Amino acid sequence: MNLVLQNQASGVPVGTETEEWRILSARIAWMFWLTDRRAEFPANPEQEKMLWEQQAPEYRAYVRKTLRALETEGIQLRKT
């Protein structure tokens, strides 16, 4: 299976397969996930690391879809 098909199967939108997109979406996803988590629970870095490893793929794919949707509306959070 080629990389584009693998990315689509994992929830990565077309046009967001680059390393730049991966880094941007990972940073934004981590920031929002951690903010939401700490709003509900006390800080626990060990537990957060374990939970993030489990939830990161879906969360990052959601962030990529959201960023891609914003881009289609003309809003960009990255250099072009």
Score class of each variant (00 low, 15 high):
58 E>V: 12
4 V>Y: 05
12 V>L: 04
57 P>G: 06
41 F>Q: 11
37 R>I: 02
72 T>H: 08
78 R>S: 04
68 R>A: 08
52 W>C: 00
50 M>W: 07
35 T>H: 04
46 E>C: 01
18 T>W: 12
75 I>T: 05
24 L>S: 05
36 D>N: 15
28 I>D: 11
14 V>K: 07
51 L>T: 03
25 S>H: 05
49 K>E: 11
34 L>Y: 08
46 E>P: 01
54 Q>M: 11
9 A>V: 04
55 Q>C: 07
60 R>Y: 01
70 L>Q: 10
4 V>R: 12
77 L>W: 09
45 P>W: 00
4 V>Q: 12
78 R>Q: 03
50 M>K: 13
20 E>F: 02
22 R>V: 14
23 I>C: 10
59 Y>D: 00
53 E>L: 08
33 W>Q: 08
2 N>M: 08
14 V>T: 09
9 A>Y: 06
69 A>H: 06
24 L>W: 07
16 T>M: 11
74 G>V: 05
30 W>S: 02
61 A>H: 07
67 L>D: 01
7 N>A: 15
77 L>A: 00
68 R>K: 14
76 Q>A: 11
1 M>P: 04
12 V>W: 03
66 T>S: 15
15 G>K: 09
63 V>K: 01
51 L>I: 12
52 W>R: 03
65 K>W: 00
8 Q>L: 15
54 Q>W: 02
21 W>G: 09
61 A>G: 10
9 A>W: 10
